[in-house]
């Protein structure tokens, strides 16, 4: 069952088209790797799909609801590439930051109380950050901050988890742990994952589907299809395609 439908979507900044006429669907339980070189429009596409920037052309629907009318935000967990105006002096503890992820499921007045402690504690344990829950976000290392933001995205048990370049700050060991957590969420809990990365060499090890973007759609499908696709061969050349597929 498709839970996200992207139809002929184009995104423009000023007069420059950064994403051109993209169509694809995401089914429940998919683990979609969105891949492409720097400047290929990956982040713009994600931001457009979830209504953070306006779409120049086309339509997006999530859970059969047009994005402009979409209200079921508690079903979405989002980890941005970076926080645009991150202030290292921000006086919030890890627990306070993670609790923000629960606001989507609250009605007015949106309050976080003791009743939310169980959900927060569960996600802190899952991501192994219980020991830093009373620390200020600015006191943490980049990798720890990233895990805290992931905890915020996951605390409401979303149906779709959207992650934009989530492993940039992580060393190889932490990256492996991170991907293992995602894989368990996908396999055991059925969470649909959309993961933006430029690391095409590794994403095929985790994702069930790939979407290769270079302002326009180059490829969308399973990894086996990727390795046999003539469009991919035309784009990468036979040798590069072989190297990418051989790695997996």
């Amino acid at each position: 069952m498709n839970i996200i439908s992207v139809n002929n979507v184009s995104v423009r900044y000023q007069s420059v088209e950064v994403v051109s006429n993209i169509s694809f669907n995401v089914a429940a339980g998919d683990y979609l790797g969105i891949v492409g070189p720097n400047g290929s429009g990956k982040t713009s596409l994600i931001r457009a799909i979830f209504g953070l920037i306006s779409i120049a052309k086309g339509t997006v629907s999530i859970f059969n609801q047009n994005i402009s009318d979409f209200q079921q935000w508690h079903k979405i967990g989002y980890l941005p590439q970076k926080i645009l105006s991150f202030n290292p002096n921000f006086p919030a503890t890890v627990k306070e930051i993670v609790a923000m992820g629960l606001l989507a499921q609250k009605s007015f007045p949106k309050r976080i109380g003791r009743g939310d402690d169980a959900a927060i504690d569960r996600i802190l344990v899952l991501l192994d950050i219980t020991n830093i829950k009373d620390k200020l976000i600015g006191e943490l290392s980049g990798g720890q901050q990233q895990r805290v933001l992931l905890a915020r995205a996951m605390v409401a048990e979303p149906k779709i988890l959207v992650l934009d370049e989530p492993t940039t700050a992580l060393d190889p060991e932490a990256r492996e742990k991170f991907f293992t957590v995602l894989q368990e969420l996908n396999k055991k809990s059925g969470v649909t994952i959309m993961l933006v990365t430029h690391d095409i060499m590794n994403i095929g090890r985790y994702a069930s589907k790939l979407l290769y973007l270079d302002r326009k759609l180059v490829f969308h499908g399973g990894f086996d299809e990727f390795c046999s696709s003539s469009e991919v061969t035309d784009y990468f050349g036979e040798f590069a395609q072989h190297v990418i597929c051989h790695r997996h």
């Binding site: 935000w73 989002y78 645009l84 991150f86 919030a92 923000m100």
Partner: peptide, 22 residues
């Protein structure tokens, strides 16, 4: 007081607050 948690959320990260339905 009524909007406290929402104000803290948009102060920390406006984009994520938006995706939290705020």
């Amino acid at each position: 007081f009524l909007f406290y948690h929402e104000l803290v959320s948009i102060t920390f990260d406006e984009e994520c607050a938006k995706i939290s339905g705020i």
